[in-house]
Amino acid sequence: MTVRIADVEIPDSALARAATELVRAAAEPLVYDHSRRVFLFGAFVGDREGLTYDPELLYVGAMFHDLGLTRTYRTSDQRFEIDGADEARRFLREHGVSEEGSRVVWEAIALHTTPEIPHHMAPEIALVTTGVEADVLGIGLDAIPDEARAEIVAAHPRPDFKRRILAAFTDGIAHRPQTTFGNVKADVLERFVPGYVRTNFVDVIENSAWPE
Protein backbone atom coordinates (compact mmCIF):
# COMPACT_ATOMS: atom_id res chain seq x y z
CA MET A 1 0.00 0.00 0.00
CA THR A 2 1.36 3.39 -1.00
CA VAL A 3 2.00 5.68 1.96
CA ARG A 4 2.41 9.42 1.49
CA ILE A 5 3.47 11.69 4.32
CA ALA A 6 3.84 15.44 3.77
CA ASP A 7 3.38 14.71 0.05
CA VAL A 8 6.42 12.40 0.06
CA GLU A 9 5.81 8.85 -1.12
CA ILE A 10 7.61 6.21 0.92
CA PRO A 11 8.99 3.53 -1.43
CA ASP A 12 7.00 0.30 -1.29
CA SER A 13 9.21 -1.94 -3.42
CA ALA A 14 10.44 -5.33 -2.24
CA LEU A 15 13.82 -3.71 -1.56
CA ALA A 16 12.32 -0.93 0.56
CA ARG A 17 10.11 -3.35 2.49
CA ALA A 18 13.12 -5.57 3.24
CA ALA A 19 15.08 -2.54 4.45
CA THR A 20 12.20 -1.51 6.71
CA GLU A 21 11.95 -5.01 8.20
CA LEU A 22 15.69 -5.22 8.84
CA VAL A 23 15.81 -1.87 10.63
CA ARG A 24 12.64 -2.57 12.62
CA ALA A 25 14.18 -5.84 13.85
CA ALA A 26 17.56 -4.36 14.77
CA ALA A 27 16.77 -0.88 16.04
CA GLU A 28 14.80 0.60 18.89
CA PRO A 29 11.73 2.67 17.89
CA LEU A 30 13.81 5.79 18.61
CA VAL A 31 16.23 5.00 15.77
CA TYR A 32 13.55 3.58 13.47
CA ASP A 33 11.36 6.69 13.70
CA HIS A 34 14.39 8.97 13.42
CA SER A 35 15.52 7.14 10.28
CA ARG A 36 12.09 7.46 8.65
CA ARG A 37 12.06 11.18 9.44
CA VAL A 38 15.51 11.51 7.89
CA PHE A 39 14.13 10.05 4.66
CA LEU A 40 11.02 12.22 4.76
CA PHE A 41 12.85 15.46 5.51
CA GLY A 42 15.53 14.70 2.92
CA ALA A 43 13.04 13.73 0.22
CA PHE A 44 10.82 16.72 1.00
CA VAL A 45 13.73 19.14 0.56
CA GLY A 46 14.96 17.28 -2.51
CA ASP A 47 11.54 17.54 -4.15
CA ARG A 48 11.24 21.23 -3.27
CA GLU A 49 14.66 21.88 -4.81
CA GLY A 50 13.84 19.89 -7.94
CA LEU A 51 16.61 17.35 -7.40
CA THR A 52 16.61 14.09 -9.31
CA TYR A 53 17.31 11.20 -6.97
CA ASP A 54 16.57 7.50 -6.63
CA PRO A 55 13.94 7.18 -3.85
CA GLU A 56 14.94 3.60 -3.05
CA LEU A 57 18.60 4.48 -2.60
CA LEU A 58 17.73 7.51 -0.50
CA TYR A 59 15.40 5.36 1.59
CA VAL A 60 18.01 2.69 2.27
CA GLY A 61 20.61 5.35 3.05
CA ALA A 62 18.28 7.02 5.53
CA MET A 63 17.07 3.80 7.12
CA PHE A 64 20.56 2.30 7.56
CA HIS A 65 22.41 5.48 8.53
CA ASP A 66 22.35 4.78 12.29
CA LEU A 67 22.36 0.98 12.07
CA GLY A 68 25.93 0.98 13.41
CA LEU A 69 24.58 2.15 16.77
CA THR A 70 22.53 -1.04 17.22
CA ARG A 71 23.77 -4.05 19.16
CA THR A 72 23.25 -6.28 16.14
CA TYR A 73 25.43 -4.33 13.74
CA ARG A 74 27.91 -2.38 15.85
CA THR A 75 31.57 -3.36 15.85
CA SER A 76 34.39 -2.26 18.11
CA ASP A 77 37.11 -1.24 15.68
CA GLN A 78 35.60 1.26 13.25
CA ARG A 79 33.32 4.28 13.18
CA PHE A 80 29.64 3.50 13.63
CA GLU A 81 28.91 5.23 10.31
CA ILE A 82 31.03 2.62 8.52
CA ASP A 83 29.21 -0.21 10.29
CA GLY A 84 25.94 1.01 8.81
CA ALA A 85 27.49 1.75 5.42
CA ASP A 86 29.02 -1.71 5.18
CA GLU A 87 25.75 -3.43 6.07
CA ALA A 88 23.84 -1.29 3.56
CA ARG A 89 26.27 -2.22 0.79
CA ARG A 90 25.96 -5.91 1.68
CA PHE A 91 22.18 -5.64 1.74
CA LEU A 92 22.00 -3.82 -1.60
CA ARG A 93 24.32 -6.24 -3.36
CA GLU A 94 22.26 -9.13 -1.99
CA HIS A 95 19.18 -7.53 -3.53
CA GLY A 96 20.79 -7.06 -6.94
CA VAL A 97 21.53 -3.33 -6.77
CA SER A 98 24.41 -2.17 -8.96
CA GLU A 99 27.88 -1.47 -7.61
CA GLU A 100 27.35 2.21 -8.42
CA GLY A 101 24.09 2.37 -6.47
CA SER A 102 25.64 0.48 -3.56
CA ARG A 103 28.60 2.86 -3.55
CA VAL A 104 26.34 5.92 -3.44
CA VAL A 105 24.48 4.57 -0.42
CA TRP A 106 27.73 3.56 1.29
CA GLU A 107 29.04 7.10 0.90
CA ALA A 108 25.75 8.64 2.03
CA ILE A 109 25.92 6.73 5.30
CA ALA A 110 29.68 6.93 5.87
CA LEU A 111 29.67 10.72 5.41
CA HIS A 112 26.44 11.70 7.15
CA THR A 113 28.27 13.18 10.17
CA THR A 114 30.86 14.99 8.05
CA PRO A 115 29.80 18.62 7.58
CA GLU A 116 29.62 20.24 4.13
CA ILE A 117 31.20 17.55 1.94
CA PRO A 118 28.01 15.48 1.33
CA HIS A 119 26.23 18.53 -0.05
CA HIS A 120 28.71 18.60 -2.95
CA MET A 121 28.07 14.96 -3.89
CA ALA A 122 25.28 12.90 -5.48
CA PRO A 123 21.73 13.94 -4.49
CA GLU A 124 21.12 10.79 -2.45
CA ILE A 125 24.27 11.49 -0.43
CA ALA A 126 23.39 15.14 0.07
CA LEU A 127 19.80 14.40 1.05
CA VAL A 128 20.65 11.82 3.71
CA THR A 129 22.77 14.50 5.37
CA THR A 130 20.01 17.07 4.84
CA GLY A 131 17.56 14.82 6.66
CA VAL A 132 19.98 14.09 9.49
CA GLU A 133 20.84 17.75 9.95
CA ALA A 134 17.17 18.72 10.01
CA ASP A 135 16.11 16.07 12.52
CA VAL A 136 19.10 16.08 14.87
CA LEU A 137 20.53 19.58 14.62
CA GLY A 138 17.56 21.62 13.42
CA ILE A 139 19.59 22.85 10.44
CA GLY A 140 17.44 23.81 7.47
CA LEU A 141 14.10 23.51 9.26
CA ASP A 142 13.06 26.80 7.68
CA ALA A 143 12.97 24.94 4.34
CA ILE A 144 10.27 22.62 5.70
CA PRO A 145 6.90 24.31 6.30
CA ASP A 146 5.28 23.88 9.70
CA GLU A 147 2.43 21.78 8.26
CA ALA A 148 4.81 19.32 6.59
CA ARG A 149 6.97 19.09 9.68
CA ALA A 150 3.92 18.44 11.86
CA GLU A 151 2.67 15.70 9.53
CA ILE A 152 6.04 13.96 9.54
CA VAL A 153 6.36 14.13 13.32
CA ALA A 154 2.78 12.91 13.78
CA ALA A 155 3.62 9.83 11.72
CA HIS A 156 6.99 9.30 13.41
CA PRO A 157 6.99 11.00 16.82
CA ARG A 158 10.10 12.28 18.57
CA PRO A 159 9.30 12.33 22.32
CA ASP A 160 12.24 13.54 24.43
CA PHE A 161 14.30 13.09 21.28
CA LYS A 162 17.29 15.28 22.11
CA ARG A 163 18.10 13.46 25.34
CA ARG A 164 17.33 9.99 23.98
CA ILE A 165 19.34 10.31 20.75
CA LEU A 166 22.35 11.58 22.67
CA ALA A 167 22.03 8.55 24.97
CA ALA A 168 21.86 6.28 21.90
CA PHE A 169 24.98 7.90 20.44
CA THR A 170 26.82 7.41 23.74
CA ASP A 171 25.76 3.78 24.09
CA GLY A 172 26.74 3.03 20.50
CA ILE A 173 30.25 4.49 20.59
CA ALA A 174 31.48 4.53 24.21
CA HIS A 175 33.17 1.13 23.75
CA ARG A 176 35.22 2.42 20.77
CA PRO A 177 36.33 5.93 21.74
CA GLN A 178 39.30 5.84 19.36
CA THR A 179 36.89 5.94 16.41
CA THR A 180 35.67 9.42 17.32
CA PHE A 181 38.99 11.11 16.55
CA GLY A 182 38.38 13.97 14.13
CA ASN A 183 34.59 13.68 14.05
CA VAL A 184 31.63 15.18 15.85
CA LYS A 185 30.97 12.16 18.06
CA ALA A 186 33.99 13.07 20.19
CA ASP A 187 31.76 15.84 21.57
CA VAL A 188 29.27 13.22 22.76
CA LEU A 189 31.85 11.19 24.67
CA GLU A 190 33.43 14.31 26.15
CA ARG A 191 30.04 15.33 27.57
CA PHE A 192 28.68 11.97 28.72
CA VAL A 193 31.57 9.55 29.43
CA PRO A 194 33.51 10.30 32.65
CA GLY A 195 37.26 10.26 32.16
CA TYR A 196 37.15 10.41 28.38
CA VAL A 197 39.91 12.60 26.94
CA ARG A 198 39.58 13.41 23.26
CA THR A 199 42.59 12.89 21.02
CA ASN A 200 44.14 16.21 20.02
CA PHE A 201 45.17 16.60 16.39
CA VAL A 202 48.07 18.89 17.30
CA ASP A 203 49.38 16.33 19.81
CA VAL A 204 49.27 13.62 17.16
CA ILE A 205 51.44 15.71 14.85
CA GLU A 206 53.87 16.81 17.55
CA ASN A 207 54.26 13.29 18.94
CA SER A 208 54.51 11.49 15.61
CA ALA A 209 57.53 9.33 14.69
CA TRP A 210 58.97 12.10 12.54
CA PRO A 211 61.96 13.87 14.11
CA GLU A 212 60.95 17.24 12.70
Rank of each mutant, 00 (worst) to 15 (best):
M1N: 11
M1I: 11
M1W: 09
T2K: 12
D7W: 01
V8W: 00
V8N: 00
E9T: 15
P11A: 01
A14H: 09
L15H: 04
A18K: 13
T20H: 13
E21W: 03
L22G: 00
A25C: 06
A26H: 08
D33G: 04
S35D: 02
S35Q: 03
R36A: 11
L40M: 10
F44M: 05
G46R: 06
R48N: 09
E49G: 07
L51I: 04
T52M: 13
L58P: 01
Y59M: 03
M63H: 01
L67E: 03
L67I: 08
T72V: 14
Y73L: 10
Y73E: 02
T75A: 12
S76F: 12
S76M: 11
F80A: 11
I82E: 02
D83G: 08
D86T: 15
E87C: 07
A88P: 04
R90G: 10
V97E: 01
E100A: 14
E100V: 13
V105G: 00
A110M: 04
P115Y: 11
H119W: 11
P123A: 08
I125L: 03
I125R: 10
L127A: 08
T129F: 09
T130D: 02
V136P: 00
G138V: 06
A143D: 11
P145T: 01
D146I: 00
I152T: 05
P159Q: 00
R164W: 01
A168R: 13
F169H: 13
T170C: 11
D171Y: 09
Q178I: 08
T180V: 15
F181S: 04
F181V: 03
V184Y: 06
A186R: 13
E190S: 15
V193M: 07
P194K: 02
T199P: 04
I205T: 10
E206P: 01
W210T: 09
